[in-house]
Amino acid sequence: MAEAVEAVDSVVDKQPVIEVQNAIKRYGVGDASIFALNGVSLSIEAGEYVAIMGPSGSGKSTLMNIIGALDIMTSGKYFLDGIEISSMDENHLAIVRGRKIGFIFQSFNLIPRTSALANVELPMAYQGVKPKERRERAMVALDVVGLGDRVNHEPTELSGGQQQRVAVARALATRPALLLADEPTGALDSKSTGDLLDLFDQINAAGRTVVVITHELDVAHRAKRIIRMRDGKIVGDEINKERVA
């Protein structure tokens, strides 16, 4: 399986994948405004496995949206894989998302009534990958997540765990610089959760940068570095000694 992960892998640079400088995200104006992010600075190197933890309202989801280029911040700078994207418009952000980031969402976010294979192929289609190569890469990615025999199933014909693995395959197939997971186990049972976290371990072992946003302790403890957030600020950033010898 590890060889298969390497097969879909690309060369990973040793510069910071994520460089966030003094990120501020404010909702509303004047006295009524709320700081979802209040001066967050963060640097994540290539090949790291990072968990971002915190209770609801701590700003971790906002941070994830900013890191994922899904949302823009009020002020601050953000470099993704060496490219400053805090000043980009929505159209360029879409391209950056497609090429640099593989998303895994709590609610899977697969396209309904569309086969697993077509779902995995979709981001590559938007990148302009040729159909033949796209199909091969999608098949490999689905093999990696253990769904090689279910490529023609639609999301409704798959279990939650399987759907999430399709989402992982979709994220992996584009060979992103960063795998970004937002509460990936939130909708899964404990067996599926275990399988998914094993998969993350393998992906990280193959050299891929993985960032997981979670409020579950056992999920966070599988990461090699844990960042804790509260009230829009980073309150803890430590190496997970259980995982890093």
């Binding site: 159209n91 998302r97 497609g98 981001p123 938007y126 979709r170 584009t174």
Partner: peptide, 16 residues
């Protein structure tokens, strides 16, 4: 709308 969101999240430009 949600499907559009997914498509945009995984890299679909506005024009597409």
């Amino acid at each position: 709308t949600r499907e559009i969101g997914i498509r945009k999240a995984i890299g679909a430009p506005k024009s597409a």
